[in-house]
């Protein structure tokens, strides 16, 4: 009898662990969205389809491509370039699996821009946020050492069938698309809403 009760307790515990895990997953994102600093990022969406999730838009940001010559960096750009030129792309990209990108909003500007890309987390002052760039891909154009980063805000779920509309409007150069994201003090990031010409098209809440 005792063993059976033990089994029941164990079973209940693992169900609770699973529920707590899901709650933590949701809770951590809620924390970011509610407590984080809200910043605006310029985008241009493109749209694939996901079978399981209905519809989503792929978001590509201005900050997704960073020219290392225009920001401060502690990365050895000369060595990266040398390895890249020698065809050792994998070696280069493996060094860019994780980097910290500091963003600021310059005076009078609407959108936040990168000012540094570093391998160590930099200090954050007021008016700055730091986010993690992941899976960086080095993509050298002429003398421009460009890195393409992912920030975990590249896809956004929209109601079934509306993804293509957003994509079509985004291809229209006359419409200004941007995304409102929240960055909490730990550098976690989450999408709050998508805007077109100042009008909110879709929001997480």
């Amino acid at each position: 009898m005792k063993g059976r009760l033990g089994f029941r307790t164990k079973f209940i515990i693992i169900v609770i662990i699973q529920l707590l895990f899901l709650a933590a997953l949701a809770g951590s994102k809620l924390f970011t969205l509610h407590t984080g600093e809200v910043i605006l990022l310029k985008t241009s969406p493109i749209d694939p389809r996901s079978l399981f999730s209905g519809d989503y838009v792929m978001l590509n940001y201005d900050i997704s491509r960073i020219n290392l010559k225009t920001v401060y960096t502690d990365l050895d750009t000369e060595k990266l370039q040398k390895d890249f030129n020698a065809g050792r792309h994998i070696l280069v990209n493996r060094q860019l699996q994780k980097a910290y990108v500091k963003l600021v909003k310059k005076d009078g500007a609407k959108f936040w821009q990168p000012v540094s890309v570093t391998s160590l987390r930099p200090e954050v002052k007021k008016g700055e946020v730091v986010i993690e760039g992941r899976e960086g891909i080095y993509d050298s154009w002429g003398d421009k050492p460009i890195v393409r980063f992912k920030y975990g805000i590249e896809s956004y779920y929209v109601p079934e069938g509306t993804g293509l509309d957003i994509e079509r409007r985004a291809s229209n150069a006359n419409i200004e698309s941007y995304v409102e994201v929240a960055v909490d003090r730990f550098g976690n990031i989450g999408i709050v809403a998508i805007f077109e010409d100042g009008k909110k098209v879709s929001g997480t809440f």
Binding site: V15, Q18, L22, L25, A26, K29, L30, L33, F52, S53, R134, K150, G152, I153, E154, S155, Y156, Y157, G190, I191, T204
Partner: peptide, 22 residues
């Protein structure tokens, strides 16, 4: 089925909050 639903729960919560890191 509970295990399947747990997995679905992960993907659905990721969808609600647009979590797509790794």
């Amino acid at each position: 089925l509970g295990v399947l639903f747990f997995g679905a729960g992960i993907w659905l919560i990721a969808q609600i909050f647009n979590i797509n890191a790794h």
